[in-house]
């Protein structure tokens, strides 16, 4: 009996691993092609007859991205807005979600309806712009943070995680004399780390990639995040190659620069990611806390 079961589980492992490997290859081949292409010389890229090894390598695309040194400042803005944005967003949403996770909360129905409406209806670009103007957020760093404090979608996710927290633990805390805030901070939050990490990841990636906010509300280039800077570089490259007045070959194309920008902006995420990953891939277990 036992050996049979073991071989069954073995088979499962083997099949699972093989399938995962196939999937990984399907995902990786195009990605490696993107990376290789970003390092290809522009003519080799135009020929496009390679998957991993272009005829000629070149750093021109990366030179074009980094030629304007103000990009480093933009990196700084991006890091700052991502860090501050994520911390405030996660805390703010968790606070609201914790209260809303209590099904007996008075007025919960109204709050829910209000929240759901915000998920589907928005006044559009123009009134939002006017609002930002009235709030004095145009050309202010806080336009990256304040409007992003809250998202009902994230609240719903967190709310459902908070509901998984065993009520016995909270009851016990209450008996010990802990108030709502203490229960929230010492019981609910730590037990929902995977969810908090997920929301942090979602929001962090959004903050990192977002350039629309800057495009709409920023005219001060000193406050441009890196994605806006890169967007500008790509747009200008497109215009320049179409308005060529010299007799020199183009050393870069907008496609090459786009590929390079993807690599440049994704690398920091790959570096930061493992820090969050440990919280939801194999890390903490609810059982461990219980004991």
């Amino acid at each position: 009996m036992k050996t049979k079961k073991l071989t069954g589980d073995r088979m499962f492992d083997i099949v699972n691993t093989v399938l995962i490997l196939i999937i990984a290859i399907i995902i990786l081949v195009p990605l490696l092609n993107v990376v290789a292409s970003s390092f290809a010389e522009s003519r080799a890229l135009a020929e496009g007859n390679f998957i991993f090894f272009p005829e000629k390598w070149s750093l021109d695309n990366y030179r074009a991205v980094f030629k304007d040194t103000s990009i480093w400042k933009a990196f700084g803005i991006s890091v700052a807005k991502t860090l501050i944005g994520v911390v405030t967003h996660v805390f703010f949403c968790a606070m609201v979600a914790y209260a809303l996770s209590k099904r007996n909360l008075r007025g919960r129905k109204l709050y829910t309806v209000m929240g759901v409406i915000t998920m589907f209806f928005s006044g559009g670009m123009i009134p939002t712009y006017l609002l930002m103007k009235q709030l004095g957020l145009l050309n202010s760093f806080w336009v990256y943070i304040l409007p992003q404090l809250f998202s009902y979608y994230d609240v719903v996710i967190l709310m459902n995680f908070f509901r998984q927290v065993p009520s016995s633990l909270e009851e016990a805390a209450k008996i010990d004399g802990a108030g709502v805030w203490r229960t929230f901070l010492t019981i609910a939050m730590p037990l929902s780390k995977p969810a908090l990490a997920t929301i942090a990841l979602f929001n962090g990636v959004f903050q990192w990639n977002d350039f629309m906010t800057a495009k709409l509300y920023m005219t001060d280039k000193n406050l441009y995040p890196v994605q806006m800077k890169l967007y500008e570089i790509i747009v200008q490259q497109q215009a320049q190659s179409m308005n060529s007045i010299g007799n020199v070959a183009l050393s870069t194309t907008s496609k090459g620069i786009q590929l390079a920008t993807i690599v440049v902006t994704t690398v920091p995420i790959i570096i930061i990611y493992p820090l969050l990953q440990k919280h939801f891939v194999s890390g903490m277990m609810l059982g461990a806390v219980k004991e």
Binding site: S42, R43, L45, A46, E47, G48, Q240, S241, M242, N243, S244, G246, N247, V248, A249, L250, T253, K255
Partner: peptide, 25 residues
Amino acid sequence: EKESIGKYACIMMEGTPQQSGFLTT
């Protein structure tokens, strides 16, 4: 890209000044 590597033998071409960067290449 096809323009800049001469992939086409003949081209019915519009907007030559806008194509000039690729033609020069």
